[in-house]
């Protein structure tokens, strides 16, 4: 069992080496601003995908409103930084709290809905959040909130992402995560096993929404501006597509999905229409030939190559 922690330590060391290399390439200007921006976006999208996977993949509650929570975080962070001059880390933490509270507020009433009804309700709530923001002049209304300092560096995005990935990974591998998975597999049986299904669903919504808020806060501090049009339900679809592409119930998959889609979209950014057509075709083909996603519910760390790290039980 202690090997679990050893495995964690190894994963962190590998991540740090990876970070050092990428940061070195950035500092040496081998990777230009365009790529720095996209590396930040990849980290942000990984946070969104992994946190959404907790709700959709592990708990089995199809949510199509993730962009709404992201919006809450983005605007909270922007207001705090610009109007209250809070340090970046504090903005991030408060963004988490605000989005998580909203997640709970939305989660509590909608949680008894199931399947398609929940999906469409979360979609509607996400849109309502966006429309309400659009009508609040304090945050710039439909024109967006401008003049946000660019605090999000690759280092910030990377380390926050690393924290979120570890948080979610450890969450799903504990009794909290097992409760979520039990709910996904059979809600009535889960309840009968003593799992308070309402509590764990709301908790999953809170944690997922909170980290979406964190991603939003990072996002807002990347572009000098947050604009309501960044948080439509189409954005939410995008995050769902990332996790389905990677495989629901696999954190590795969510990371891969976020990475692949963000990279492909960066590479094709010169041809916006063609990009979306290719995107659509890939999506359809993926559902035909690999509906369980690239990784299914398998984690990288359970592949044979990683087994030797594990050692005895």
């Amino acid at each position: 069992m202690n090997s679990l922690r050893k495995l964690d330590a190894k994963a962190i060391i590998i991540s740090l080496i990876g970070f050092a290399i990428l940061q070195g390439l950035l500092t040496a200007d081998i990777l230009d601003n365009f790529w720095e921006l996209n590396m930040i976006l990849i980290c942000i999208n990984i946070i969104l995908a992994v946190s959404l996977n907790l709700i959709n993949g592990y708990t089995g509650q199809l949510s199509l409103g993730h962009a709404g929570f992201m919006a809450v975080g983005a605007y909270t962070g922007a207001v705090l930084t610009v109007n209250f001059h809070t340090p970046f880390l504090i903005s991030i933490i408060i963004s988490f709290v605000t989005a998580a509270i909203l997640g709970a507020m939305i989660g509590l009433p909608t949680i008894r809905l199931s399947g398609d009804y929940l999906a469409i309700a979360t979609l509607g709530l996400g849109e309502i959040i966006r429309i309400v923001i659009m009508n609040v002049n304090y945050v710039g209304g439909a024109a967006g909130f401008m003049g946000i300092p660019k605090y999000t560096t690759f280092a910030w995005a990377f380390f926050v992402m690393l924290f979120v990935v570890f948080f979610i990974k450890n969450y799903v591998n504990s009794s909290f995560g097992r409760a979520c998975i039990a709910i996904r597999e059979n809600e009535i049986a889960a309840e009968t096993m003593g799992v308070n299904t309402t509590k764990y669903k709301v908790l999953a919504f809170m944690v997922g929404a909170g980290f979406a808020g964190v991603a939003g806060c990072l996002f807002g501090h990347t572009f000098y501006i947050v604009h309501p049009s960044s948080f439509t339900f189409l954005a939410s679809f995008n995050y769902v597509i990332m996790i389905v592409m990677g495989g629901l119930g696999s954190i590795t998959g969510s990371i891969a999905g976020a990475f692949i889609l963000t990279t492909v979209s960066a590479l094709l950014s010169a041809w916006p229409e063609l990009r979306m057509i290719i995107y659509a075709v890939i999506l359809i083909l993926l559902m035909f030939y690999r509906p369980q996603g690239l990784f299914g519910n398998i984690e990288l760390t359970s592949l044979p190559i990683f087994k030797r790290f594990k050692g005895g039980k």
Partner: peptide, 9 residues
């Protein structure tokens, strides 16, 4: 659980 402290283990 998230920090994987001794009690969790």
């Amino acid at each position: 659980a998230v920090l994987r402290v001794g009690r969790y283990m």
